[in-house]
Design a protein around this nucleic acid. Structure first.
Ligand code: ZN
Ligand code: ZN
Ligand code: ZN
Ligand code: ZN
Lengths: 132, 132
DNA sequence: TCAATTGCGTTATGCTATAACGTGTGCGAT
DNA sequence: ATCGCACACGTTATAGCATAACGCAATTGA
């Protein structure tokens, strides 16, 4: 699935997320885009919906925030789950994929005849720099 | 860690969750307890905070809801991660534990010197009954 | 040309969670 | 005993996250 040309609003939101060093909430994005004409939450949420659909942005459920995909080129998302390590000190997020984890989870789901559609794997704690 | 005696409010909230067949939002719990004197969200959230701390209730981040622990006796939570399969049709939640998944995730975290504190593993989709 | 789709802007509303204040109760230390 | 502290509780207000519902404009394809 190739990503369609982004609309103006989608590009603005995506740029903000790409330049951010930590995940952003929808309302934070809104504030950052007020100078570009954004006035209402829906403008952000609608853009985010599309970016999520295209797979270029991820939603972090445990902190109600959004982050640009760290692996936009390799389309790892089509053949595996995505996991995130979220530092509660500096806010940094590391996106990673582990085939073994995928495999085990898939195995459990299959053996329980559970048809998975969306997954959330998020670990919160402290990154190497902040753990000191 | 043994669970302390629950206070009145904590017991009420815990009972509601235990009898529920699906996860409940804090406000749904509030509504169910209005007849017992509950009037404000904080009464629910404060009870939930304690129940989460005691490990007898889990929070499902991806659906902003709470569920009673399915394995209150075995204290699996002390030595492993918890995962949830959430059916988007019937609302049913299956809580499970997989040591292999734990092990792989722990391995990744360790090799990246990431100090984990809380984890969220939630799979949303359709259960065996609803998948038909 | 007409209908269907998609994006957009705006207003209003709903759902989720916490801040900040004060009260009462139990319990150990002085 | 009474002081101080911790904790649960109640209430009001507010903050933060997300969507409903309306209407308009541009695009596309029959
Ligand atoms: Zn990604
Ligand atoms: Zn950090
Ligand atoms: Zn449990
Ligand atoms: Zn089901």
């Amino acid at each position: 699935m190739t990503t369609p040309i982004l609309t103006k609003n989608q590009s603005l939101v995506f740029d903000v997320l790409t330049k951010a060093e930590a995940p952003l909430s929808a309302y934070t994005i809104l504030d950052k885009l007020r100078d570009h004409g954004f006035r209402a939450p829906l403008q952000v949420y609608r853009a985010l919906d599309k970016l999520l659909e295209y797979g270029v942005v991820h939603r972090l459920e445990s902190i109600n925030s959004f982050v640009a995909c760290a692996h936009p080129d390799e389309n790892c998302h089509s053949h595996g789950l995505v996991a995130f390590a979220i530092c509660e000190s500096c806010g940094q997020v590391i996106e990673f994929h582990d085939h073994e984890v995928d495999h085990r989870l898939m195995h459990w789901l299959k053996s329980h005849k559970f048809k998975a559609e969306k997954s959330t794997i998020e670990i919160r704690g402290h990154c190497a720099s902040c753990a000191a």
